[in-house]
Lab assay of single mutants.
Amino acid sequence: VTVHVNRYTYHFDNPEEAEKFAREMAKRLNMTVEIHGNTLKVE
Results as ranks from 00 to 15, higher is better:
residue 1 V to H: 08
residue 1 V to E: 01
residue 1 V to F: 15
residue 1 V to S: 06
residue 1 V to K: 04
residue 1 V to T: 09
residue 2 T to S: 08
residue 2 T to D: 08
residue 2 T to H: 13
residue 2 T to L: 09
residue 3 V to D: 01
residue 3 V to C: 03
residue 3 V to F: 01
residue 3 V to W: 00
residue 3 V to T: 01
residue 3 V to G: 01
residue 3 V to N: 02
residue 3 V to M: 01
residue 3 V to H: 01
residue 3 V to E: 01
residue 3 V to L: 02
residue 4 H to Q: 12
residue 4 H to Y: 08
residue 4 H to K: 11
residue 4 H to P: 01
residue 4 H to V: 14
residue 4 H to A: 05
residue 4 H to I: 15
residue 4 H to C: 15
residue 4 H to L: 13
residue 5 V to F: 10
residue 5 V to A: 03
residue 5 V to Q: 02
residue 5 V to R: 02
residue 5 V to N: 02
residue 5 V to G: 03
residue 5 V to I: 13
residue 6 N to F: 14
residue 6 N to M: 13
residue 6 N to K: 08
residue 6 N to E: 10
residue 6 N to P: 03
residue 6 N to Y: 13
residue 7 R to D: 12
residue 7 R to T: 11
residue 7 R to G: 15
residue 7 R to F: 11
residue 7 R to Q: 13
residue 7 R to C: 14
residue 7 R to H: 13
residue 8 Y to F: 12
residue 8 Y to Q: 13
residue 8 Y to C: 15
residue 9 T to V: 14
residue 9 T to S: 08
residue 9 T to Y: 09
residue 9 T to R: 09
residue 9 T to N: 05
residue 10 Y to I: 05
residue 10 Y to P: 00
residue 10 Y to S: 01
residue 10 Y to D: 00
residue 10 Y to F: 12
residue 10 Y to G: 00
residue 11 H to M: 08
residue 11 H to V: 10
residue 11 H to R: 06
residue 11 H to C: 15
residue 12 F to H: 00
residue 12 F to Y: 02
residue 12 F to A: 00
residue 12 F to E: 00
residue 12 F to N: 00
residue 12 F to V: 00
residue 12 F to S: 00
residue 13 D to I: 09
residue 13 D to P: 07
residue 13 D to Q: 10
residue 13 D to C: 14
residue 13 D to N: 10
residue 13 D to A: 10
residue 13 D to G: 06
residue 13 D to L: 09
residue 14 N to D: 14
residue 14 N to L: 07
residue 14 N to T: 11
residue 14 N to G: 06
residue 15 P to K: 14
residue 15 P to T: 10
residue 15 P to R: 15
residue 15 P to S: 11
residue 15 P to A: 13
residue 15 P to V: 14
residue 16 E to C: 11
residue 16 E to H: 10
residue 16 E to D: 11
residue 16 E to A: 12
residue 17 E to W: 05
residue 17 E to T: 08
residue 17 E to Y: 06
residue 18 A to F: 02
residue 18 A to I: 01
residue 19 E to R: 09
residue 19 E to W: 15
residue 19 E to Y: 15
residue 19 E to I: 14
residue 19 E to Q: 10
residue 20 K to W: 09
residue 20 K to L: 12
residue 20 K to P: 01
residue 20 K to C: 14
residue 20 K to Y: 09
residue 20 K to S: 11
residue 20 K to A: 12
residue 20 K to T: 10
residue 20 K to F: 09
residue 21 F to Y: 03
residue 21 F to S: 00
residue 21 F to A: 02
residue 21 F to G: 00
residue 21 F to P: 00
residue 21 F to K: 00
residue 21 F to N: 00
residue 22 A to I: 04
residue 22 A to T: 02
residue 22 A to R: 02
residue 22 A to D: 00
residue 22 A to F: 02
residue 22 A to Y: 02
residue 22 A to S: 02
residue 23 R to H: 10
residue 23 R to F: 11
residue 23 R to E: 07
residue 23 R to N: 09
residue 23 R to G: 04
residue 23 R to C: 15
residue 23 R to V: 07
residue 24 E to L: 12
residue 24 E to W: 14
residue 24 E to S: 10
residue 24 E to P: 00
residue 25 M to Y: 05
residue 25 M to S: 03
residue 25 M to T: 07
residue 25 M to L: 13
residue 25 M to R: 02
residue 26 A to G: 04
residue 26 A to K: 03
residue 26 A to M: 04
residue 26 A to T: 03
residue 26 A to R: 04
residue 27 K to A: 13
residue 27 K to V: 10
residue 27 K to C: 14
residue 27 K to F: 11
residue 27 K to G: 08
residue 27 K to T: 11
residue 27 K to M: 12
residue 27 K to P: 01
residue 27 K to L: 13
residue 28 R to H: 07
residue 28 R to Q: 10
residue 28 R to L: 13
residue 28 R to W: 09
residue 28 R to C: 14
residue 28 R to N: 06
residue 28 R to D: 05
residue 29 L to T: 04
residue 29 L to H: 08
residue 29 L to R: 03
residue 29 L to Q: 04
residue 29 L to F: 12
residue 29 L to N: 05
residue 30 N to T: 04
residue 30 N to D: 06
residue 30 N to A: 05
residue 30 N to Y: 04
residue 31 M to H: 05
residue 31 M to N: 03
residue 31 M to F: 06
residue 31 M to R: 04
residue 31 M to S: 09
residue 31 M to D: 02
residue 32 T to L: 08
residue 32 T to P: 05
residue 32 T to S: 09
residue 32 T to C: 11
residue 32 T to K: 13
residue 32 T to Q: 10
residue 32 T to F: 08
residue 32 T to V: 14
residue 33 V to A: 02
residue 33 V to D: 01
residue 33 V to R: 00
residue 33 V to H: 01
residue 33 V to P: 02
residue 33 V to T: 02
residue 33 V to M: 05
residue 33 V to Q: 01
residue 33 V to C: 03
residue 33 V to G: 01
residue 34 E to H: 15
residue 34 E to L: 14
residue 34 E to V: 15
residue 34 E to N: 14
residue 34 E to F: 14
residue 34 E to W: 10
residue 34 E to Q: 15
residue 35 I to P: 03
residue 35 I to E: 04
residue 35 I to W: 14
residue 35 I to D: 03
residue 35 I to L: 06
residue 35 I to Y: 13
residue 35 I to S: 07
residue 36 H to Q: 11
residue 36 H to G: 04
residue 36 H to P: 01
residue 36 H to A: 09
residue 36 H to D: 12
residue 37 G to W: 04
residue 37 G to Q: 06
residue 37 G to F: 06
residue 37 G to E: 07
residue 37 G to T: 05
residue 37 G to C: 10
residue 37 G to N: 06
residue 37 G to L: 06
residue 38 N to M: 06
residue 38 N to G: 07
residue 38 N to R: 05
residue 38 N to P: 07
residue 38 N to K: 06
residue 38 N to D: 09
residue 38 N to Y: 03
residue 38 N to A: 07
residue 38 N to S: 08
residue 39 T to Q: 11
residue 39 T to F: 09
residue 39 T to L: 10
residue 39 T to W: 07
residue 40 L to T: 04
residue 40 L to W: 09
residue 40 L to S: 04
residue 40 L to H: 04
residue 40 L to A: 04
residue 40 L to Q: 03
residue 40 L to V: 13
residue 41 K to M: 13
residue 41 K to D: 05
residue 41 K to N: 10
residue 41 K to L: 14
residue 41 K to C: 15
residue 41 K to H: 14
residue 42 V to R: 02
residue 42 V to M: 04
residue 42 V to T: 04
residue 42 V to C: 08
residue 42 V to W: 03
residue 42 V to E: 04
residue 42 V to I: 10
residue 42 V to Q: 03
residue 42 V to P: 04
residue 43 E to M: 15
residue 43 E to I: 15
residue 43 E to D: 11
residue 43 E to T: 15
residue 43 E to Q: 14
residue 43 E to G: 15
residue 43 E to P: 04
residue 43 E to N: 12
